[in-house]
């Protein structure tokens, strides 16, 4: 039996696939029902940008270029960056008010704090971590600046301090980790929101509230909680009166993003069975194809060939 390089890979792939059956990725080990989350009700948001201001203040971010009262920023869509962990964007739905004016919908954008964060999975040093209280946090002392997290994130959230050549950091919403770790603490944005468009609580409770709210007004709300299943679930949840696609919240697979990669990696490296098997097979193969070497006369062959 001839084993080529290609057929070896085939065997390995089959082995990996087999082991994946029935074993889901282990990235969710930290998440539970008592995780904190935030429910953002797009129907309630009035676009006052106070969350942006509170975020800037609580996280001691650099001063904003324009005032937080400047509503002309809505004229273009923005993304969170290293100086703003959250931004509010305005979208016009197809709805119009009594005077025929298009009704704006405001949506706050920030890190979704996925239950199975792709950024943390992609991070090769463990600088990004899903904490027990739900926050996905970043530890700059571990970061090597590879920026894989930025590529991995399905919501394009992490930003990088390209302007800082010496100690650049990846920057993103912290879920005000320190504040919410305290009893009764709130993230800055939810605390300042004047209309409670942001509701802070445990994710399970928020899901209950969200479903109650949308089912009580079925003609107004889209009957879906965005973030309940998307990419395996997120700590931040959205409900809205306009279709989510119109708010920049695009349909995403329900499977967690790191599912495939982590399944492969974790199943290969679980109990070190794959390396052990691989090297076992290799050892067996060597023995099978090269019995002379095993019998202690390797030099002869070499000499013969050289001669």
């Amino acid at each position: 039996m001839q084993i080529t390089r290609r057929s070896l890979f085939k065997i390995m792939g089959a082995a990996g696939g087999l082991s994946a059956i029935g074993s889901r990725a282990a990235a969710a080990e930290n998440t539970s029902d008592d995780d904190y989350g935030c429910l953002a009700d797009v129907g309630r948001c009035i676009g006052c940008r106070k969350c942006e201001m509170a975020c800037s203040k609580v996280n001691a971010l650099p001063p904003a270029q324009t005032s937080f009262e400047d509503m002309t920023v809505f004229d273009r869509n923005r993304r969170p960056d290293e100086a703003a962990f959250t931004v509010v964007n305005r979208y016009f739905s197809s709805r119009a008010d009594e005077r025929g004016q298009p009704v704006p919908a405001y949506i706050k954008v920030q890190c979704m704090h996925c239950l199975h964060p792709a950024c943390a999975s992609a991070c090769i040093t463990g600088a990004l971590k899903k904490q027990e209280n739900g926050a996905v946090t970043y530890n700059p002392s571990r970061c090597i600046g590879c920026r894989y997290c930025m590529i991995a994130c399905p919501f394009q959230i992490p930003a990088y301090e390209f302007s800082d050549p010496l100690t650049p950091r990846v920057r993103k919403c912290t879920f005000c980790f320190e504040n919410i770790s305290k009893q009764g603490g709130l993230p800055g944005c939810a605390a300042i929101c004047p209309v409670e468009a942001l509701t802070f609580g445990t994710r399970s409770e928020l899901l209950k509230i969200a479903h109650q709210r949308i089912s009580e007004a079925p003609l107004e709300y889209v009957q879906k909680v965005y973030g309940e299943h998307e990419v395996g679930g997120t700590s931040w949840l959205y409900i809205s009166k306009v279709p989510f696609e119109k708010l920049g919240l695009y349909p995403l697979p329900e499977k967690e993003i790191p599912h495939l990669t982590e399944t492969i990696q974790h199943s290969i490296f679980a109990y070190m069975w794959a390396p052990i098997t691989l090297f076992g097979i290799l050892a067996g193969a060597m023995r099978f194809f090269n019995p002379q070497q095993m019998s202690g006369k390797p030099s002869q062959i070499q000499t013969e060939k050289e001669v």
Partner: peptide, 12 residues
């Protein structure tokens, strides 16, 4: 109450 905290670097 934490809204009454001061912090550096903000625009207010």
């Amino acid at each position: 109450d934490f809204l009454s905290q001061e912090s550096a670097g903000s625009s207010f």
